[in-house]
């Protein structure tokens, strides 16, 4: 599997700016990237404290600090 690049992480952040929250799969589909790689990028961004996980009946990711929408 390819490595997570800064470019991919930037793409994930850009996408999450356009939605209140998303499942990892939705992010991968929107970016047209491999899901497993997007999973890794999201995990890396979570460790960098740039995104956070939320639970709304199931788990989603959102940009850190972005207002929550139910």
């Amino acid at each position: 599997m390819a490595e997570v690049t800064d470019e991919l992480k930037e793409k994930v952040i850009k996408y999450l700016e356009t939605v209140p929250h998303a499942k990892n799969r939705d992010v991968a589909r929107a970016l047209g990237d491999e899901k497993a790689l997007v999973d890794k990028a999201i995990a890396a961004l979570a460790k960098e404290d740039k995104i956070e996980y939320i639970y709304l009946g199931a788990s989603f990711v959102k940009l850190k600090g972005k207002k929550m929408v139910d």
Binding site: A43, A46, K47, D49, E52, Y53, I54, Y55, L56, G57, S59, V61, M68
Partner: peptide
């Protein structure tokens, strides 16, 4: 009330709000 944002840095599991 259940859910929302709770967690520790880098984790999305293990804490139930």
């Amino acid at each position: 009330k259940h859910g929302g944002i709770v967690g520790v840095t880098g984790y999305g599991a293990g804490v139930i709000g």
